[in-house]
Write a protein that binds this DNA or RNA. Structure first.
Lengths: 156, 156
DNA sequence: TATTGTTATACTCTATAACTATA
DNA sequence: TATAGTTATAGAGTATAACAATA
């Protein structure tokens, strides 16, 4: 069961208060990102999936057989968190550990059929949620934003 | 004393793994925002100030006399968290509660002289950190990004 | 009765140290 | 000895319920 989450509150006193803060990319991005993530979280709730779990499923799908250490790195979480994450996915039969590598300390991670099918649905849900949450932008503006974010993400 | 924080890890296996995730504004924004916030956090560390405390100081400075409830709303935190936040600022003599309103349940929040002086310095630090963290963008691109973020922030 | 601020509490998230089994 | 995974644990962060003082 997912825990209850507060909806992101509307910006309070925005014009006056943020006159210096809204020139900071980090501050503005945090506020916007909270709203978008809340939206995604709500959209995924009916499937009992958290945003980070959706990301994990996507990564496993795109690199089947990867090790937990790789998953942790890709998710920017610590190995112990990856253990709990994979435990949950495995408990729901969405993914599985396969002890198949020459190095017997590590597992290969794979999605189950059910995992693949659920991910297919989740992808649509996530994309729809993301577009809804950025509806204030035109399609072109959204593309520009994604381009700028990719630039910031890739560099360094 | 600020706790130790891990540096944001570099994007792992980016090209291959993110082919679907990097079309999601929410995902990309989260990853970028983590990096920017980490940068800010490091920059503020020598002043023993967290990003949210910097934001609180800025908001109090721009709306002197505001109530804790207003501060909580502007910070998107719950009132009990605002209590702890103001306690810390007051303990460091950066801000103070003044029981001056007609409504004697509430306080007015104000910065001390020391708070104002520190904030002045923090503003420079924060702006420099923000620009450093977005150095992958040209000045024009950064302006476009801020415009798009403001659009997303204000709408709804 | 409702609201401001507060206290107490619990739950999530995250980080680290220490253990195991392999290498 | 070094590494992959795991366990245990502790620390932040955050949410809610309940209370006191005031409206």
């Amino acid at each position: 069961m997912l825990q209850k989450r507060k909806a992101t509150p509307e910006p309070a006193l925005p014009e006056k208060l943020d006159s210096s803060l809204n020139n900071l990319v980090g501050y503005m991005m945090r506020r916007v990102q909270m709203k978008i993530t809340q939206d995604l979280s709500n959209s995924l709730e009916e499937h009992d999936i958290r945003p980070v779990q959706f990301t994990a499923l996507t990564i496993i799908d795109q690199s089947p057989g990867l090790m937990q250490a790789d998953l942790a790195k890709a998710l920017a979480i610590e190995p112990p968190q990856a253990v709990l994450m994979v435990n949950k996915l495995e408990a729901r039969s969405l993914a599985m550990r396969v002890r198949s590598n020459p190095d017997k300390r590590s597992y290969g991670l794979f999605l189950s059929k059910a995992g693949e099918q659920l991910l297919k649905k989740l992808r649509e849900v996530a994309m729809q949620s993301d577009i809804n949450a950025t509806a204030a932008l035109t399609s072109d503006e959204r593309e520009v934003l994604l381009t700028l974010l990719n630039k910031l993400y890739i560099e360094q």
